[in-house]
């Protein structure tokens, strides 16, 4: 059948069913996790950097809705080769563009969780912030 909301495009379903870079890294430079308490979305991400602070590999694991998990999978593909400054510059619109579907206000938190996790993890790594765990429902 034709699903009206069109939110679950083939690309999203593909990343949800077969997540890329799923699992963990042996020697990550940093690891960080975050959640949407209200939704129950959880993302934990391992990031490995080279000497110039450029991302060489990423892995994630998590649990939650298709939007949160597919967006994490898609983001990991994009992160490889990025500098931390480029990671800093990622925003909500980048995530929504990447997903390529309309995201209702209720689901935006699902779409941006992975981005916030890698950004907070990078900030903690560089000593910019002190945070145990990202929680989008606290903000």
């Amino acid at each position: 059948m034709d699903l009206g909301s069109d939110i679950y495009r083939q690309q999203i379903l593909d990343h949800y069913r077969n997540p890329r870079n799923h699992g963990s890294l042996e020697e990550p430079t940093f690891t960080h996790e975050g959640e949407n308490t209200m939704c129950g979305d959880l993302i934990e991400m391992d990031v490995e950097l080279d000497d110039d602070d450029v991302i060489t590999s990423v892995a994630f694991r998590g649990d939650g809705c298709a939007i949160s998990q597919a967006s994490a999978s898609m983001l990991t593909e994009r992160l490889i080769g990025m500098s931390l400054e480029e990671v800093d510059a990622l925003d909500r619109d980048d995530m929504i563009d990447m997903l390529g579907v309309e995201i209702s206000p209720m689901r935006v938190k699902c779409a941006v969780l992975a981005e916030k996790v890698v950004q907070d993890g990078a900030d903690i790594h560089r000593g910019k912030i002190d945070l145990d765990r990202t929680n989008l429902d606290d903000s």
Partner: peptide, 12 residues
């Protein structure tokens, strides 16, 4: 299937 995904499909 996460309940939010289920509710979204139900909306269709």
């Amino acid at each position: 299937v996460h309940p939010h995904d289920l509710a979204q499909v139900m909306n269709d």
